[in-house]
Simulated assay, not measured.
Amino acid sequence: MTAPNVIDQPRPSPQQEPAARTASTWHSQIPDDKAMLRAAAELTRDIATARAAIYWPDMLGSAALGYAALAGAILLDSPLAALACGLLASLALYRALLFIHELTHIHKDALPGFRFVWNLLVGIPLLIPSFMYEGVHTQHHARTRYGTIEDPEYMPLALMKPWSLPVFALTAILLPPALLVRSALLVPLGVIIPPVRKLVWERASSLSINPQYRRRKPEGAFARMVFWQELGASIWAIALVAASIAYGWRPLIIALCVVSLTAFLNQVRTLVAHLWENDGEAMTVTAQYLDSVNVPPPALLSPLWAPVGLRFHALHHLLPSMPYHSLGECHRRISAHLGAGSTYEQASYKGLMPLLTRLARSTMRAG
């Protein structure tokens, strides 16, 4: 899907009117800002190590709070108290789940045991083992794939019809029951029916949004990891269904509703992670950066809807391996070094609602 009358316009400068900045985009081959790329690399080398003292308490605390609140949502008699617990559970589990993003980028030896424990406590219980993101998300960062048909995490949403945005967001609500069916039924069925196994792997084994993406068969050590994670998720899913048949469906339905809200929050965050204005061409690193979004301080609510460093998503595309706890300091250093009016500053936005409004206006122009 293309929109030459929009895509071929140049990127507005910071001095132009805000309305003009909202109404236009830039060509995918905007030249790289080498000063920005150099500053990003040189100013942040000393804070590029993942710190176990931050990762472990954050992940474990988020998971513990999420499960405790989920128990309250299931067990409390007061509807208001149960609803409050459900909302808290959704936010806490959202943060715990998003450590899957860190797992795709940190070195395999950086945090011994972290991947295993995260899968045991978060990935498998919520039926989203880390293999569903590992080996997929890195393709989104590939220099020649970002924004193209080969990018599993890109759709030109800004160039699509206005109705595509609510559909995109609301379909996330169906993810938890779909994952339950996948692990409890389709994966075991695939053991005895190879075509089902092939279909499930290609089409339903990755956290991707590009409907044309097909996942390649796993190999080597990764295939062994997939086997054990799939086995754990299937055993857990079958146990959930069996327990619900034996003792009642209410706890499982409440849990699915809580995780559906988590999936919806993540889908809304995804809507504003990028500007989604590329129509399929390969992009320079700077163009990829400008098609991505930072929502830095003083935005107060961004840590809630974009936790674990994802409020610095554009910066993350400059420094993919930078641990989430260092991104705030990276942003401060680069901003101070490059100053106001720099290319770096152009990827910063004020908050969720201005970004959603910008995206909706883009779809209305495209439509």
Rank of each mutant, 00 (worst) to 15 (best):
M225L: 15
M160K: 12
Y213A: 03
L186K: 13
P31E: 12
V268Q: 00
E230F: 06
S24L: 14
G123K: 06
A221T: 13
L175Y: 10
I7S: 12
H316T: 15
A204W: 15
M353E: 04
I253V: 11
L355N: 07
P31Y: 12
H325Y: 05
Y213L: 07
V187Q: 05
L189W: 03
T171V: 14
A221H: 13
G190D: 07
A306Y: 08
P176G: 01
T286Y: 11
S130Q: 09
L76I: 09
P166V: 01
V259K: 04
R95G: 00
P195T: 09
E42D: 11
P296T: 00
D32A: 05
L87C: 02
I173M: 00
P320V: 12
L60E: 01
P298Y: 05
W305A: 06
F114I: 00
S130Y: 10
P152L: 02
T148E: 02
R358H: 02
R333E: 04
A39R: 02
K350M: 08
F227I: 09
S208V: 13
T171D: 04
A110H: 02
I235M: 11
S362Y: 11
E202V: 13
A39N: 01
M36K: 04
I30P: 11
F264W: 05
V258Q: 02
V268E: 01
D46A: 04
V308M: 03
P152W: 08
S292H: 06
A243L: 12
N278V: 03
P211M: 10
V268S: 01
A239I: 08
Y349P: 07
Y344A: 03
E17C: 11
P162L: 03
V259D: 10
P211W: 06
P14M: 06
A92T: 00
A282V: 10
V285A: 13
A336T: 07
L97D: 15
V167M: 09
W276F: 10
V308L: 04
A3K: 15
N5E: 15
E230I: 05
L93I: 04
A263F: 00
L37W: 00
L76P: 03
L359N: 02
A347Q: 04
P303T: 01
L65G: 00
Q16A: 12
L76Y: 02
L175W: 11
P303D: 04
Y55W: 11
M1R: 12
A20M: 14
Q288F: 06
T22P: 11
R269W: 00
A340P: 05
S183D: 15
T357F: 15
V259R: 03
R250F: 09
I245T: 06
G280L: 05
R21Q: 10
L103F: 12
L189N: 07
L271C: 05
P296V: 03
K350P: 10
Y133W: 11
A221C: 11
G341D: 13
R216G: 15
F312N: 08
N119H: 10
Q15Y: 13
H313D: 14
T144M: 03
P307S: 10
L175P: 03
I74H: 04
A50W: 14
S13Y: 10
S130E: 05
I253H: 08
A246S: 05
L157N: 07
